[in-house]
């Protein structure tokens, strides 16, 4: 016999995921605007790989296909991976990354709801560790005067890794603004000198800063729609801002200003779309603040001192590990137990 309650609100998992996907649209649109449509190809590849792997794993684990394929969670993982790798990467890069994310990081840990690590970030981490070379060829923004590839040429490159005659890969691509900053700082330039380089815009990397702003816009929609908790992005961005602000004040020549940190790399997409993955983040309000702060701190440390250009992915994975601990520590007091000590 069914137990009460007999009515439910109709916001189901798939609708939540769908709204998250909608919220990614402004960022993706700006991406296309600044960097060309290659990213759409990456997304299509990653999504196909995600759904195929999900279906395969569900079959292997003897689970029903329909409810899980239609909850959009695998789709979202695919999109996030595509967004975190260079759009002009060879076709197998998003496919391998996504397949790994879904098969290993998600299903080997028990599938939806049981995975301790954010699958998209695991996929990214595996790619950047295994294929560092392919992962650094980012497209330059289209309006920087480089000879841009047509969509056909991009497709050709993605699937065959050959460029039209007479074109150099290095002329089309660049390393990310964060990467460049790190390399140039090592070479002895100051932050302000570096930021005069043509790849930089007003706040951070030219183009990429706008994409970040697009993601922030989507994130704010998610906050208002109460799809994601406010504690996570606030704690993360706040910590990142505060730390980079302090260091920038002390030594402006060697530390980039806070807004630069906010609008470069995966900070925005991380704050609103990756850290906020409910499955791999804490469930208590206090825990979320701790989690966000920890991720902010790690991101800053990795960016400032680490070997990788961006730290969001590794910060996320490291903090994912602490989630059970954070949850256990921050259990709130229940009604009627406020005054007492536990």
């Amino acid at each position: 016999m069914l137990s009460s309650p007999f009515i439910t609100r109709t916001l189901s998992v798939d609708r939540i995921m769908l709204r998250v996907l909608y919220a990614l649209l402004p960022g993706i649109a700006l991406y296309v605007w600044y960097f060309g449509p290659a990213i759409l190809v990456s997304i299509a590849l990653a999504v196909t790989a995600a759904l195929a792997t999900e279906a395969l794993m569900l079959k292997l684990r003897d689970r029903p296909l329909r409810p899980f394929l239609s909850d959009y969670s695998a789709l979202l993982t695919g999109v996030l991976i595509a967004l975190s790798i260079p759009p002009l990467a060879p076709w197998w890069l998003p496919v391998v990354g996504t397949a790994f994310a879904i098969a290993v990081a998600k299903h080997l840990y028990g599938g939806l709801g049981s995975n301790p690590f954010n699958p998209a970030m695991i996929g990214y981490a595996v790619l950047i560790i295994s294929f560092p070379h392919e992962m650094t060829h980012w497209l330059s923004p289209q309006d920087m005067g480089h000879s841009a590839l047509s969509l056909g040429q991009q497709l050709h490159y993605i699937f065959t890794s050959t460029l039209p005659a007479g074109m150099q890969l290095d002329a089309l691509t660049m390393s990310t603004p964060l990467d460049t900053l790190k390399t140039q700082l090592h070479l002895g330039m100051t932050v302000s000198d570096i930021r005069d380089l043509p790849i930089y815009g007003r706040l951070a990397g030219k183009g990429s800063e706008m994409v970040a702003a697009g993601f922030a816009l989507g994130g704010i929609y998610l906050l208002i729609a109460r799809i994601i908790p406010w504690q996570l992005p606030l704690a993360f961005l706040g910590t990142l801002f505060a730390l980079s602000g302090v260091f920038n004040l002390i030594d402006p020549a060697h530390y980039a200003p806070p807004l630069f940190h906010w609008f470069s790399g995966a900070a925005m997409i991380g704050a609103f779309f990756i850290l906020t993955d409910p499955i791999t983040s804490p469930t208590t309000a206090k825990g979320r603040i701790l989690f966000g702060m920890g991720a902010g701190l790690l991101t800053f440390l990795i960016r400032a001192y680490g070997g990788f250009p961006d730290g969001v992915a590794f910060a996320t994975i490291l903090m994912n590990m602490c989630v059970p601990l954070i949850d256990a520590w921050t259990q709130p007091k229940v009604f009627g137990k406020k005054g007492s000590k536990r």
């Binding site: 137990s3 003897d62 689970r63 029903p64 296909l65 329909r66």
Partner: peptide
Amino acid sequence: KWRYPVFELRQTS
């Protein structure tokens, strides 16, 4: 005693 809820995941495939 209340029974363990039947988990209906498999039935829909």
